Each structure stands twice: as C-alpha cells, then as structure tokens.
Simulated scan of single mutants.
Amino acid sequence: MSTDPVNAFVPGPRARIPGKPGLPLSGLTFAAKDLFDVAGIPTGGGNHDWARANPVPERHAWAVQRLLDAGAELVGKTITDEVSLGILGESAFDGTPLNSAAPERVPGGSSSGSAAAVAAGLCDTALGTDTGGSMRVPASFCGLYGIRPTHGRLDLAGLMPQAPSSDTAGWFARDAATFARVGKVMLGEEPGRLPTKLLIAVDAFGFADPEVAAALQPMVERLARIVGSPPREEIMAPQGLSVWARAQRSLQPAEAWQTFKPWIEQHNPRMAFSVAAGLIAGSQIPASERNWAALMREEARARLRYLLPAGTILCLPTTPFPAPLRGLSLPELQPLRDRITCLCAQGGLAGHPQVSLPGATVDGAPVGLSIIGARDSDASLIAVAKAMENAA
C-alpha cells in the first residue's frame, strides 16, 4: 500500500527525522511545506528548476527546528503550488494533492500538500505558509484548523520568501487539542484568554455564496455563546472588499517579482503558464499603482486597529465558496481566485492573526469560519478554537 495515497509529499526519498521522547510534542508527527529548509534535503519550492539553482540547505528552517526541538517527528516535505504562487493547490510539476474531505475538488494552495497530508491522517500537523491566503484557504477547503499568525510574530529564517511584507508561516491540525498543543510551542505561550466582544463582518458574509453564509450561521451562534455578549455587525472594508483585494494584488505580485527576478533572469526556469503570467504582471505594475496600494494598506491597518482592540474578535467566511472542482480551465479559475482574494486580502494588508475553524459543509464539502483578532492575540484565537470544539 502506498505511504502517500493522496499525493501530498514531494516525490523522491522522504525527509524523515525521528522525534525524541519526554518533550512537549513527543508522539506527534509533522510535515513541512517544501518552502521550509530541512538540512541535507533540497528545498524545491514547487519548481524543479528552483531546487537545481539553489544550494542544499545546511540547517533546518526555524519552524522545523522548533518542532523537532519539542520532540515532534518529521515525516516528509509536502507539495506546494509553484514558488508558492497559487491559491487552489494544483501543481504542474508534482501533481495536485487529493482533498480527502472532497476528493473531486482541489485542496487549496499554496500549502496544498501540507493540508492534504493532515486531512488524510498522514501526519498530526503540518507547516505551511500564508502570504495571500495559503493557510486559510486550504484549511477551509479541507476542513482543518489553520492559522495565519500575526505578521512578524514567527521567525521565518530558512523559509523561501515570496512577498516578505506579507509572508507568514502557520500550521494545520484536524482537532483543536493538537492545534493548541503545536501553538503553545510555536508561539511560546499557552492559549490566551477568551475574547469578550464579537463582531460579524457583514460585508464578507454578504459577499460569500448564500449557501456558505447559511451553513456558517450555527458556528457564528456558537461563537457568540462562547464570547458571552451579543455580536455586533460591522463593515470590515468600508472602501470595498474588492478594493482591498486590488491593493493586495498590486503589492504582493510586485514584491514577488522582485523576489524571483534574479533567479528568472539568471536561469530562465521552466514554469506553468499561469505562474509565468502572474510574475510578468507583477513586473509591470506601475509605481502609481503600488503607491496607491501602499496607502490602501495603511487604511486597512487603521480599520482593523479600530475594529479590533484587545478582547475583540471579528468573524467572517474564510472562503466565499467550498473548494472548486479539480481540472477547471484557466478562464474558469481566474474569477474564483479573485473572489477568494476579496476575503483574504486583509491578512496580507493588515497583518492581524487569523484562524480558520472547521465545522460546516456545503453540498458535502467543507467551508471554514474565520476569526481575526488584534495583533499578537494569536493565543487568544487558539483558545477560541478549543472552546468552539468543546461546545460543538
């Protein structure tokens, strides 16, 4: 029987490092997205030419070392969308990992392999990254707990960059207890206090498919009971969700182009058409657009600072719809990507922590409810995740 029935792991010899007993994460297994360095193993980044052009790392990425030092066992490196420039999880080089929760649908990207491995029970937790939604979207599509931490909260040493002003590293889990156990190690603190105020992002719920909004309603009601005060409806993005998305689509691709430009110009790597097209578009974003987007980022940060003082959380659908079907054409996929960005842009723009909670389905496919808190309230969001599971 295959040890990788869902095509979650990078092809070839499996990176494995045994855990140690008697430590906080002893007995847990984890995988790492193929953007994280593992000493002695090439970092592939979802593109075979990237691995050929870059030296084999001599030390582990900070996040990998953190879990190993806590006793967890590394069981492999997982497939990622090419150079992390994807949101649906389809890879031209290594294939598309299987979404166990909805096998006919994509797993979400770019942390596709990590989400697929956890969803299939091939490991207890897995490291991924989130620049424009790459933790939150796979968590929603695969029915997992997933976190985009506060931007800058975790050390990204040994992580292949994409757009550093938005890059973060997070983790997935199937259950809240494991999610919190890993969080204690990664954050260096216990789950925090529960919030006392709940806001509902009515613009985000209105933007999502009606079936998604309806499916998430019982979770919102449970969340309100946990917080213990009547929720208040708010507009998350007064300028418009699509305006925030436009700003993120201006800043992130322009930064990604600067990240990958030296590699592209020196090595002329092979790329999927959609990835090459995105990088070309990023190279052509004018300064006037970037300057506008930078100002919109400041407005988004100000808005979330206002909405989210300590002790307050905001909830919204993680994605506007469940995972799309596998194998759709590029013209069919682009509007779906754009809609996803409208519900994910606040992460890269404002840098607040966000956790996607599982617990709802539409037509049998998972959809997640997200909670966002004040910067550095990551541990409080994890406490909410535990309380939500206990109250289910």
Rank of each mutant, 00 (worst) to 15 (best):
G348L: 08
P353I: 10
R339M: 10
C342T: 12
P331R: 09
T341N: 11
G351V: 11
R326K: 13
G327S: 05
L349T: 12
S329L: 06
G351N: 04
R339F: 06
D338F: 14
P335D: 01
G327K: 06
P324F: 06
A345K: 05
R326H: 02
Q346A: 13
E332R: 07
Q346V: 14
L328C: 00
L349R: 07
L336Y: 02
D338Q: 13
L325A: 05
A350P: 11
R326L: 08
G351K: 04
P331C: 06
A345P: 02
G348F: 11
Q346C: 08
A323Q: 09
P324M: 07
G327F: 10
L325W: 02
P322H: 13
T341P: 00
D338K: 14
C344W: 00
A323I: 13
P324Q: 06
L328P: 03
E332C: 01
C342E: 15
R337S: 07
Q334V: 14
L336I: 15
G351Q: 05
L328Q: 07
Q334H: 04
G327Q: 06
R339A: 14
E332Y: 09
Q334S: 02
G347M: 15
A323N: 01
L325C: 01
P322K: 11
L349H: 11
P353C: 10
L336F: 04
A323W: 10
R337M: 13
E332K: 04
S329T: 13
L336E: 00
T341W: 06
A350C: 14
C344D: 09
Q346L: 14
G348V: 14
L325N: 03
C344Y: 03
P335I: 15
G347H: 12
A323F: 10
S329Q: 05
R339H: 03
P331F: 12
L336H: 04
I340R: 06
R339L: 15
P335L: 14
P353T: 12
R326N: 01
G347R: 09
P353W: 15
G327A: 03
R326V: 04
Q346E: 04
S329W: 05
E332S: 02
A323R: 04
I340K: 03
L330E: 04
G351D: 08
R337E: 08
P335H: 09
A345T: 07
A323C: 05
A345G: 06
A350G: 08
L336K: 12
